[in-house]
């Protein structure tokens, strides 16, 4: 009887541990993942222009690596809700790629890279564009991004 109780307790602790870990598990970041697609913003834009649903199906959730001129770094929100973004511009007017970073640790590195060529990667979230407002251009959005300092590391 004692053994059964101990076994049940161990199972209970195990289940609680798994649930607790699942609930608090950290977000997966692109820094631990190999780039699945290496592409320019303009090529990505061409793919969405020719067939946006096919392009979205092809690239969604993939870790995409893009190199380009870092136009600006944006910080939005505050406290726990603060988000940090790096924005690369394409050759096409109004089309940009926006990488969100998992924490503030990359802030100082990114700030020093503004107006320089950078290589970034992140999980593709989609193309924020609406044909009803073409004057807004479009933004390719990437989550949990990472800076790749040197292309040869990939």
């Amino acid at each position: 009887m004692k053994k059964i109780i101990i076994l049940l307790l161990l199972i209970l602790i195990g289940v609680f541990g798994v649930v607790y870990w699942q609930w608090n598990k950290p977000r997966e970041t692109a820094s631990n993942r190999k780039s699945e697609v290496i592409i320019s913003i303009d090529s990505l834009y061409s793919a969405f222009q020719s067939n946006d649903s096919l392009a979205f199906a092809t690239y969604q959730n993939k870790v995409i690596q893009i190199s380009g001129l870092l136009d600006r770094v944006e910080r939005q929100g505050d406290g726990a809700n603060q988000s940090n973004f790096a924005v690369l511009l394409s050759k096409t007017d109004g089309i940009e790629a926006k990488f969100s970073f998992p924490d503030t640790s990359s802030n100082s590195i990114l700030s020093n890279l503004v107006k320089k060529n950078v290589v970034l990667k992140g999980f593709f979230a989609g193309f924020n564009y609406d044909a009803m407002m073409p004057e807004m251009g479009g933004t390719f959005e990437f989550n949990q991004s990472a800076i790749i300092q040197n292309k040869t590391h990939e």
Binding site: S83, G126, Y129, M132
Partner: peptide, 14 residues
């Protein structure tokens, strides 16, 4: 007009 991506909603818990 507004447009936004669903995957750009950030939650406190992953």
């Amino acid at each position: 007009k507004f447009v936004g991506l669903m995957k750009s909603f950030k939650f406190p818990k992953p």
